[in-house]
Design a binder for these strands. Structure first.
Lengths: 241, 241
DNA sequence: CGATCTAGAATGTATAGACATCTAGATATT
DNA sequence: AATATCTAGATGTCTATACATTCTAGATCG
């Protein structure tokens, strides 16, 4: 189990397993129990638990204990992470038209997202995504080389999402940033757009069950053919008092 | 200054002030400097900084230092925060410029969202939302008349979010749909945009703790001044694993 | 029996160090 | 001049301990 050099990440991984097998509101091991179980000091055990608190997986109650969060796997969102899944929900069939697929060097943004250094080797995959044969988006995915090496990629119709799971990396969390701008000429060509039309940009980073970054993706959607929808729940992010 | 009994919250508050007055990428005080400045141990200083890291207000880089985050967090799509709150997180002051505020009749879309019939009486509130005096969005909110009657509305600077909570309606769930298009002439005027610029559209319905619809909002953001950010979690499909 | 008190358990906050690892610049070497 | 090495500073991890605060349940008392 202890595959990390960093103890508190091991403890956190163990706790995630426990949470996955538990029900909402279940009591989790106390700090003291974790100390004994892993042979660490309390601050280290706390650091692991705090990690899960930040992920809204568990809640701590002073004087009582640590519990599986009310909304356990903060399933919060009805937002599927994969294009394939998202299209299937709309009753459309997703497909891909590969543009590029090769080793590359991480940009500054890629490096920040994937927690490496700029210029580090990564694997680049660029595809046009289609729904029922109509181009919907251009997707530029950057994968860490070691992750990419594990995957059995099928570029034609392949869902990256499915390939990740097959390799034992379960996409468990993502950060996305969504904006909009005018389309470039290159985008107009590949998406069969008229000049002056609008695209939605999405920058997304996906993490696996251990919090390890799986991919950093820049996607450009044809705004007149695509819109995002999501079900949202408040985070109650207790930033300040 | 030290208005909290808890030191690290004071330090965090101080750091938020500093962040608000800084630019993206600026270097912040090191752990050691904070220790001396506040006369605390390093773990305490770290706890304050970690708080801001979790809020994505700052980023720490090993061997380099602590920096103001590249994109001081835009509103988390995963949490229906109010415009007011989201601007505060960026260190900006939110304000409003009322456009309209009157009884109206529900459109077909409003009726669907609020679970009534088209033509039913509703309350309409249209405002330009500004951050530090710069127009960011036009917000058209439709409220059920009975809900609106309960509220003590302050149209000038008011946060609808706060008014809801004061009236015992806790926003607990929302549905949102986000798209993009070219700005209209009317939008260009109110948002001080150039012709041909892009806007992000958001249609959102917020529900309270009892699943009752609180408001149906159409918001138009200036795309070059605003972007959405979201933390996403996948759907748990109970079939596998 | 019911109300109160109390001891224990659990988390929250804070200290003072220690060593590891990474970065960038200065210095020395070739 | 280019390269290699060193070093100071910064964050990352971890220990061992102390006391504060809150909650629960059992013991005690009226």
């Amino acid at each position: 189990m202890g595959t990390n050099q960093v103890i508190y990440l091991d403890i956190a991984a163990h706790l995630r397993d426990v949470v996955a097998k538990s029900n909402q509101g279940d009591l989790l091991p106390s700090d003291a129990e974790l100390c004994e179980l892993f042979g660490v000091s309390r601050m280290t055990a706390r650091q692991a638990v705090q990690l899960l608190v930040n992920e809204h997986l568990v809640e701590r109650r002073r004087g009582r204990g640590t519990f599986v969060a009310k909304r356990p796997v903060p399933r919060a969102l009805g937002s599927p992470l994969s294009f394939t899944e998202s299209m299937r929900q709309r009753g459309l069939v997703a497909s891909s038209r590969p543009l590029e697929s090769r080793p590359a060097e991480a940009t500054e943004d890629d490096a920040t997202a994937l927690d490496t250094k700029a210029g580090d080797p990564v694997f680049l995959m660029e595809r046009v995504r289609l729904a029922d044969g109509v181009p919907m988006a251009i997707e530029r995915a950057i994968l860490p080389t070691d992750i990419a090496a594990e995957l059995d990629l099928d570029f034609g119709s392949g869902s990256l999402h499915a390939a990740f799971e097959a390799a034992g990396h379960v996409p468990s969390k993502a950060h996305a940033e969504v904006g909009a701008r005018l389309s470039t000429e290159w985008e107009q060509e590949h998406l069969e757009l008229d000049p002056g039309t609008v695209v939605i940009t999405e920058e997304r980073t996906i993490f696996d069950q251990d919090g390890r970054p799986l991919e950093h993706t820049l996607t450009v959607y044809a705004a007149d053919r695509y819109s995002f929808s999501a079900v949202l729940y408040p985070h109650e992010e207790e930033s300040n008092r």
